[in-house]
Design a protein around this nucleic acid. Structure first.
Lengths: 222, 222
DNA sequence: TAAAATGTCAAACAATTGTTTTAAATGAAT
DNA sequence: ATTCATTTAAAACAATTGTTTGACATTTTA
């Protein structure tokens, strides 16, 4: 029997069984993937009964969906800081890049969220659609593209701007998705788990702004 | 269900069972991942018996290893074209980007290689070490970093150059790894499965060269 | 030609999978 | 105290998993 709407206060003592499952499932799914993770591994780590998953969530698939959406949902805090971004287009781009990277790499949160995002992007399920529509597309359409348009003074078509936006976003995403490669390729100045977000965001912004300035200059010349 | 094959003569000569398994395993592993793929799905697609996998390969794990290493090995052709790259640093960077993207996206080969690479990078096994050491590091150390050094006239430290190299590579890798996102984000000018490598490589090169030129100019000014 | 070797197959194996069932607790409402 | 929905737990379920078995057919070897 499925749990009904919280009409009244939760009957039995701990509502935390559900939360314990979500937390444990995040770790196991990130490590083993959807197929590799077993309900028994999840419930064991959570210290609850096997049947709890099918009770609190319809089945394994819905549990996975819930976990992915929770892990990928952009925090309200970031939404706000981006919406509030003011000042010169350069400053706005810098703020955008910084907060996007902060969202991607957030070192204050357990690392399984990063793994799960990477896994989902490399091997998408239905959850990716929501991730794109709710997080990435608004970021791009409402903040990134307009800002890039300003920075280039309307010199470029939408398609060209789209490519440029990809170049900016790709640099941010690189440090999320390719962490296993970066660890191997740059062991000299990369210490695992400790991202220098400030430094990375600074480079990405500088590199991108430099490209934009030069591209605009070239476009104006012709 | 006994399709009753026409007494297919199985004997010593038929080495192609092994090849059929490898090909089918590539597709299934790319689609379902290691855990999600079942030996029965593989052998069914290959049109061979279930026991064939355990006969020709020790077990499922060894089959996966064999498939991944085959898929990720860089072609000798690309090694050669990169080694032969001559001309101005700008031309060399362009050639580098183009051939790297060609290696990543190679549309003449079945798409499961791309998927498998993406999967491996997001969720590395021991095979990733070989991929990095044999493919990515030589590319970076022998071709990318020296070329970038020339283009910036020695204005930057190794660490700064390393960041710049990351920016260039990230743009290339983006179109490999984030294909599911690109499909959703840019349905207007992206047609699934048909990459315009020429166009993408052209943009990446132009964007990167523009950034390098402006960055160098700024560095010289101070 | 006889015997060993090789490759393939259907069938069965033991283990594990996600899920369901059944029953026992628990706390709030009557 | 009784009722009742909600939550947990143990056991059983049917299906699927990777792997092994043993027989059969073919080739190679001697």
């Amino acid at each position: 029997m499925a749990p009904r709407e919280p009409r009244a206060a939760p009957a039995v003592a701990e509502e935390n069984t559900r939360e314990k499952i979500l937390e444990a499932a995040g770790e196991v799914f990130a490590d083993q993937g959807f197929e590799g993770a077993t309900i028994r591994a999840i419930t064991e780590r959570a210290g609850v009964n096997v049947a709890a998953v099918n009770y609190h969530f319809r089945d394994k698939a819905e549990l996975y969906n819930r976990v992915v959406l929770d892990a990928c949902s952009v925090s309200a805090a970031m939404q706000k800081t981006m919406a509030e971004a003011v000042g010169s287009p350069e400053a706005r781009l810098r703020s955008l890049v910084y907060h996007f990277m902060e969202y991607l790499l957030d070192p204050t949160r357990p690392d399984w969220r990063r793994k799960l995002k990477a896994r989902e992007m490399a091997n998408p399920t239905a959850a990716l659609d929501e991730l794109v529509e709710k997080n990435l597309r608004p970021l791009r359409e409402e903040f990134l593209l307009p800002t890039l348009g300003e920075l280039t003074g309307g010199c470029f078509s939408r398609k060209e701007l789209s490519y440029i936006a990809s170049s900016v976003m790709s640099q941010c995403l690189y440090f999320l998705q390719y962490q296993p490669i970066i660890e191997r390729l740059n062991p000299d100045y990369y210490t695992p788990g400790k991202w220098n977000i400030e430094e990375i965001a600074d480079h990405v912004t500088r590199f991108s702004l430099a490209a934009l300035r030069e591209l605009t200059r070239q476009a104006r010349r012709s």
